[in-house]
Amino acid sequence: MVSQLTAPAKSDVTPQQPPRTRRRVAPSVGRPGVVWAVPGLVFFALFAIVPMLGVAYLSLTDWNGLGSPQFIGLDNWRRFADDPQIVQAVVLTLVLLAGNVAVQLPVSVLLGVWAAGHQRNRAVLSAIFFLPLLLSTAATAIMWRQLLDPNFGVPAQLAGVFGGDGNFVGTSRGAMIALVVVTSWQFVPFHSLLFQGAARAIPHTLYQAAMIDGAGRVRSFFSITLPQLKNTLVTSGTLMVVGGLTAFDVVLVLTNGGPGTDTTILPFRMYREAFQTYDYGYGSAIALLLLVVATVVSLLLTRLSGYDKMQSTQEGV
């Protein structure tokens, strides 16, 4: 409560010396600087960047795993033009990705929001729903392959009722549907968990305000829950996209790219070229192509959804 009028008098006396106030020492005290990130960056550089450069180099060579790689320049990349199956592979990858996202996102959101409630039985049921995620992908695919057998599995029983010959996984459409079903069965629990956590964080005051205004459950779901889950939707979507562009294990075990080449998606094609026919050069070129596609899609996703602006859903609450 000292009057401001006396202060100038003091400083009049002292000449040109700078004020001996304590200089603010932030930001280097208390907040982590770049130095803290160095170990993580080195790890990332060693295990992600260096192998990527190695793959880029291999894509310019011809190598079958024995002996040393022979440099052949851009021949592997020119092979893309001669290989009609690559375009088919890209299309199939995108179709499978779209199918997966279209099935997994709505189901995960609904399941996650339901599981975010607080009744006691929801915890038990959530634990049971989580079981598919604990199984390995290979085990899941083998189990489903037997389930979908046309003579001894579920399609055989359905054929007895509805007619037909039980041929499901062997048809192009059936193979795609089977892939979407198996992947969704395995990963919906994971995404539900993300949405469950996010839904629990939504402040109750919003719902209470809506109830006062007369909103029913459906209206509050679409107007409150979904917008509040925006950031989680983007996270979930990005994980699904990245997973869809790199995962081939379900394809390998369930359909092996078949029938013919109808489920030979690009990551599977890369695996087959590099590790089944030992053409590491061409496989590396395909891997780089996948890297470019995945980066572009991820960037698009973050830009279009405004994720990069890091806006909080709780602004104004």
Partner: peptide
Amino acid sequence: FGTNFQSVSYGSGG
């Protein structure tokens, strides 16, 4: 070969 051989695997169970 029947009509649903495209979905059949080799071995037991197939």
